[in-house]
Every structure is written in structure tokens, then in C-alpha cells.
Amino acid sequence: MSGEKQEEQIVESDDAILKIFKKFDIKNDGVIDFDEVKIVMKSVGLYPSNQKIRDIIKRVDLDKDGVINFKEFASMRRNEDICELNVLAQFKKYDVSRLHRGFITPESIKQVLREEGVDDDAINEYVIEFMALDSNGDGKVSFLDLYESMMTRIPDEWLEWIYVNVQRGVSDDAMIKILVENGFNQNTAQRLIEKTKREGRQVVERSYVDVGKNWVGGYKV
């Protein structure tokens, strides 16, 4: 699985966005504040620093009042902002399975989209695209799977694969062909190969996401 965003996009209604917003607005006061972001982060096993949480809020807080109102949240969703709060919002939207809490499954995606009134053909296409993010083939998408896709991070196993094949003398064209077939952007694949040749095995860039429960590091290009 590459770090490129794969899912077929489905336009969210105001009601659909409001439903996600309410998962964050725990106090039901119309805004998302520091404590609420922290609580939602903990619900998926994430424990960022206080400063990191403030930075996450600041990225979406357009009027700079220290909290996120619905207008700001809706703008983030509609503009498909590449930011950590939007990854979390996307994950919380589909993490509704009682049997597999903490993961997104085909059934949970179908449940959410049917409630939004999306037609079955569009749902089936979306499920196929979304489940392509499942990095270990267990039929579930983890937060890290989604994070790596939306934030364009490259999973560590692909860094190792590139390094091994560079050492073996595999041609750039052959490696790029396989990487592109697995969802990589061609320019990203080329940059990774060149960087590996120049600097050796790429080092995993660790963050609060990577030290969360049962998660493995990734690499941002």
C-alpha cells in the first residue's frame, strides 16, 4: 500500500458532517476544544503532547480563537484538508463496528454510507477503494493505514523493499513499475529510489502516531 490517497470521494451533506462533528463536541457546546481533541485522540490509542494538540487545532482554527466551530470543521471536510484532525475525523466517521472497535471494516463503511443515503453502486466502489488501504490483509483498516494514505506517508515495509531491490541492482524502471502498480505516484517512487541510492536505507520518521498501541512507523516524503 502506498502513501497516496486512494478512496473514491463521496460528497458529504451538512447532516453527515454534523454527525462527525458531534463525535468530537463531547460537551455539546458547539465547538471542539483542546480537551475534546485529546479525549478523541485517546480513543484511538494516540497520546500526542499538549503542544501537538494545540498545533492540530491551530491548523483548522481559522478565526484563531483556540477552538474549532462547525463552520471551520465543515470547511476542513469539504476542502479535504490534508491535516491530522481530518484523518481523525475520517477514521471516527467509519469506526462504528461493535465487533471490531478501533478499525474500519467493509460492513462499517456500508452502514455509515447507507445511513447517509448513498446508492449501493457508489458504496461498493468506495468500499473497494477504501479497503485497498488495508496493509496486512486482515480485512480491517487501522488508523495508521488511513493516516499513511491521507498524510502521504510511506509504510516502512516499502522502504525496506526499495532498499533490498536497490542492493540487488534491480533497474529503476522495474521498481517504479511495481510501485506504481501498488498505488505509488511515479514521481514519489522515483524520488524514493534516488534517495535510497544516495543515502542508503531510509530511516523511519517516528511521531506520536507511531508509538500508539500496536502501530508501526512510517516515512514521509
Rank of each mutant, 00 (worst) to 15 (best):
V170L: 00
A89P: 04
K220Q: 14
V211R: 12
A122K: 07
E160P: 04
L159A: 09
K52N: 04
K19R: 15
G3H: 05
E36N: 07
G218D: 14
I56Q: 01
K19L: 09
E107R: 12
Q90R: 09
S142Y: 09
E12N: 09
Y94C: 03
N136E: 12
K38Y: 01
N69K: 08
D121I: 15
R201L: 14
Q90A: 06
A189W: 06
K93L: 14
Y219S: 09
E148P: 03
I17K: 05
G212W: 06
G117W: 05
N187R: 04
E4F: 11
R101V: 14
Q186R: 13
E80P: 02
Q51A: 05
F130P: 04
F143N: 04
L113R: 09
V221I: 15
I176W: 09
D25I: 02
Y163S: 12
F34L: 13
F184D: 01
I128T: 15
Q51H: 05
D15N: 15
T105G: 06
E107G: 02
S135A: 14
N187P: 05
M131I: 13
S97M: 03
W161M: 12
V216E: 14
V211D: 08
P106Y: 13
L88A: 01
V96T: 01
D173N: 14
D15V: 13
E36K: 00
L62I: 10
Q190I: 10
R114N: 15
V170Q: 02
A132P: 03
V211G: 07
D173L: 06
V164I: 07
E36I: 00
D63I: 09
G139N: 09
E4C: 11
R201M: 13
V118E: 08
V118P: 07
T188Y: 02
E4G: 14
V44Y: 07
F91I: 10
Q186L: 07
S108D: 06
K197I: 02
R206N: 09
L192P: 00
K92M: 15
L192T: 00
Y94I: 12
D156S: 08
A132F: 03
I82L: 11
I162P: 03
N165Y: 08
D121N: 14
F73C: 00
F21P: 12
A89H: 00
Q202P: 09
R101W: 13
K19I: 03
P155L: 11
I109M: 07
E80W: 12
Y94S: 02
M76I: 08
K27Q: 12
R206K: 03
L46G: 02
E125D: 15
M76Y: 07
F34D: 11
V96Y: 00
I154W: 03
F184S: 00
K92C: 08
D55Q: 10
N165V: 06
E8K: 11
L159K: 06
L46D: 05
D156R: 11
G66H: 10
K195Q: 11
N28M: 08
D14T: 04
M41V: 05
K38L: 07
S2R: 04
T196G: 01
K220P: 05
N86V: 04
I26A: 05
L99R: 13
M175A: 11
D35S: 01
K42N: 15
Y47D: 00
E36T: 00
N86A: 12
E80K: 15
